[in-house]
């Protein structure tokens, strides 16, 4: 069962590659319109040294923007859940930030923040923070009131109730948002590089190659960006499984039992 589970996503990737290859060779598509998987792979290998460092730059923007965006989102959600007035004031503003086209605010952002790292982080942050706010708010409001009453009847203070009862309940919805965000963050970084950048990055590189009609190079970049987004998603999935063991396991992990015994 485990083998099937692990192998099926791999099979899906192979299927996509096969269809891609068949389309190119079967329909005799020119390589400057759609390069074959092999040509793309070749372009990736030829350009590896430069592409790798560019990918590092884009990865850096994505990760820092992701951390800032999700962190701010989480704090906002907690504040909104506990202070009604904050919720009433902030919610419409947050919705408005999502209605503004990201590409459209990139230009004004450059005027305020310059061409450096800052506007890219803001763009990535704007994309990833919203799902976190919505999901964490959901998690906090869906808590069984009985649990809170139980904790109160035991004489627990609000801080302890938050830490032991409310906060862990947000983990499941939080990770749904983090998985989405990890994939979106790369898109945000690319948009940031296109509209607000003089520094290099994979998104910038992609535009450059496109203008040179280096289609295989463009596809190589796209493949790499996809891999970065996918990697982020997978990483979040692993962290999720480790930090919410009760969702997938019947008993606590061995090492956790010991550390729990010591922590209390």
């Amino acid at each position: 069962m485990r083998v099937v589970r692990l192998a099926s996503p791999l099979l899906a990737v192979l299927l996509v590659l096969a269809v891609w290859q068949l389309a190119v060779s079967g329909l005799h598509i020119q390589s400057y319109i759609l390069p074959s998987p092999h040509q793309t792979w070749q372009a990736l290998r030829d350009d590896w040294t430069s592409v790798r460092s560019l990918a590092g730059q884009t990865l850096y923007e994505s990760v820092v923007g992701f951390v800032i965006g999700t962190g701010v989102g989480f704090l906002l959600a907690v504040a909104m859940a506990h202070v009604t007035i904050v919720h009433r004031v902030l919610y419409p503003i947050l919705i408005a930030t999502q209605a503004v086209p990201i590409v459209a605010i990139a230009a004004p952002l450059v005027i305020i923040l310059g061409y450096g790292l800052a506007p890219k982080l803001v763009i990535v942050g704007l994309i990833v923070f919203f799902p976190v706010v919505v999901n964490v708010l959901d998690g906090l409001s869906s808590i069984d009131h009985g649990m809170v009453d139980l904790a109160r009847s035991m004489g627990a203070g609000e801080a302890k109730i938050f830490l032991l009862v409310r906060l862990p309940a947000t983990l499941t919805p939080l990770f749904s948002a983090l998985k989405l965000g990890a994939a979106y963050a790369v898109t945000g970084a690319v948009i940031g590089e296109w509209t607000a950048s003089i520094t290099p990055g994979l998104g910038k590189d992609l535009l450059l190659k496109n203008s040179r009609l280096d289609t295989a190079g463009v596809y190589a970049d796209v493949l790499l960006l996809t891999a970065v987004g996918l990697g982020g998603f997978l990483l979040m999935t692993v962290v999720e499984r480790l930090s919410t063991p009760w969702r997938t396991r019947g008993t606590a992990r061995r090492w956790f039992r010991r550390s729990a015994d010591m922590k209390g």
């Binding site: 069984d144 009985g146 649990m147 139980l150 904790a151 035991m154 004489g155 627990a156 302890k160 109730i161 032991l164 009862v165 862990p168 983990l171 919410t244 009760w246 008993t251 606590a252 039992r257 729990a260 209390g264």
Partner: peptide, 22 residues
Amino acid sequence: QKDLLIPWRTVTGNIVLGAALT
């Protein structure tokens, strides 16, 4: 009436909840 066990705490963790909360 509802057992109100905390889903992310083990049986031991749930039994000691009172101590952990106070």
